[in-house]
């Protein structure tokens, strides 16, 4: 790829930012630990998400992707320090105070589809009670209309009306997931944030859950799918962002990433090669500690292509942060 194409791609990225639903620039999260140690959980994350688009944020557990999600929702613990911007409809999520986040962001602009939906629901209340309460909290539907609104929300998430009066423990994993999705949809939030929505589910259920999330993106919502399940990401994502040691190391269209061309970053290639329907060989070594990152490229110690050049951190250019990408840049 030559310089002209790279510039053209950067221009596309800039254009994307203009009609983006969510625009994240330089998002950095640090945790200060006792003893002066610092955990670099997220470093300089840049990405945009358009309406109707599904962006999958993939990476190994502990790479910082869940911290990124928590940062967007303002749910980080007290010892976290954030910098950068995350704009959604003119509000900077990182600068907003708790009141703004509670009143106008969570549920209204960002709907959260949680990791373990059964734990996300109050065990002593029925699904209907959950839905009606959320309708009351997020919309100004008058009391008589709430029942209908709750039923409509359930229908949008394909939650069967026959199970509305069930308690969370009476639901199967799939139904609990739909109930949680129905709750996330009530505020008609333009952005859905799904944090590992398929962990621990059966393969059939993974596919169904993923397809349902995709349908909500097709309805014009933006979907940020945070997952370590590459198969689920391949199924529904438009673009893929690969995170490694707190940095986004590759941001690529899904068809190219999962298709015959494949990813450009050696780590992303290694991750795909680890899949059981591909080479089924692991990436050698283990990811570094976020509290003791190596100088330069964090992947260099595990990378077959590493050279002296990798002692400096590669910038994300034309969608890949690597000094020796698969298809060399100009």
């Amino acid at each position: 790829m030559n310089a002209r194409v790279a510039r053209a791609l950067d221009a596309v990225t800039a254009e994307r930012a203009e009609d983006a639903l969510l625009s994240v620039r330089g998002l950095t999260v640090r945790f200060r630990l006792r003893g002066g140690r610092t955990v670099a959980a997220v470093t300089d994350a840049d990405f945009d998400l358009a309406p109707g688009e599904c962006l999958a944020l993939v990476g190994e557990s502990g790479c910082g992707k869940s911290v990124l999600a928590s940062a967007l929702l303002g749910l980080l613990p007290a010892n976290a320090e954030t910098s950068g911007t995350a704009l959604i409809g003119g509000t900077d999520l990182l600068a907003a105070d708790e009141k703004t986040l509670a009143r106008s962001v969570r549920g209204r602009r960002i709907g959260l589809v949680p990791q373990s939906p059964a734990a996300h629901l109050t065990p002593v209340r029925t699904v209907r009670a959950h839905l009606e309460e959320t309708v009351r909290a997020l919309t100004d539907t008058p009391r008589p209309g709430r029942r209908k609104a709750a039923e409509d929300a359930a229908e949008r998430a394909a939650f069967p009306a026959t199970h509305l009066d069930s308690y969370p423990h009476e639901l199967s994993g799939g139904l609990a997931q739909r109930a949680a999705t129905a709750l996330a949809l009530i505020g008609d939030a333009p952005l859905l944030l799904a944090d590992e929505p398929t962990t621990g589910l059966d393969r059939d259920l993974v596919e169904r859950t993923a397809d349902e999330l995709r349908r909500h993106a097709d309805d014009g919502r933006g979907l940020l799918l945070i997952t370590h399940d590459l198969t689920a990401a391949a199924r529904i994502a438009d673009r893929v962002a690969v995170m490694y040691a707190g940095r986004i190391v590759e941001l690529a269209p899904a068809h190219r990433f999962f298709g015959t061309t494949g990813p450009d970053h050696p780590y992303a290639r290694g991750l795909l090669d680890a899949l059981p329907d591909r080479a089924f060989t692991p990436v050698p070594g283990m990811p570094p500690e976020l509290s003791a990152l190596p100088e330069g490229c964090a992947f260099a110690p595990r990378c077959p292509r590493a050279t002296d050049l990798c002692a400096t951190v590669p910038a994300l250019r034309a969608g890949v942060a690597c000094h020796h990408p698969e298809r060399p840049r100009a």
């Binding site: 990476g59 190994e60 557990s61 962990t199 621990g200 370590h228 590459l230 290694g270 991750l271 795909l272 680890a274 899949l275 059981p276 089924f280 060989t281 692991p282 990436v283």
Partner: peptide
Amino acid sequence: TAMLDASTTAALVA
């Protein structure tokens, strides 16, 4: 390997 990423899964199976 149900909770693990692809690379760790492949390493444990190996």
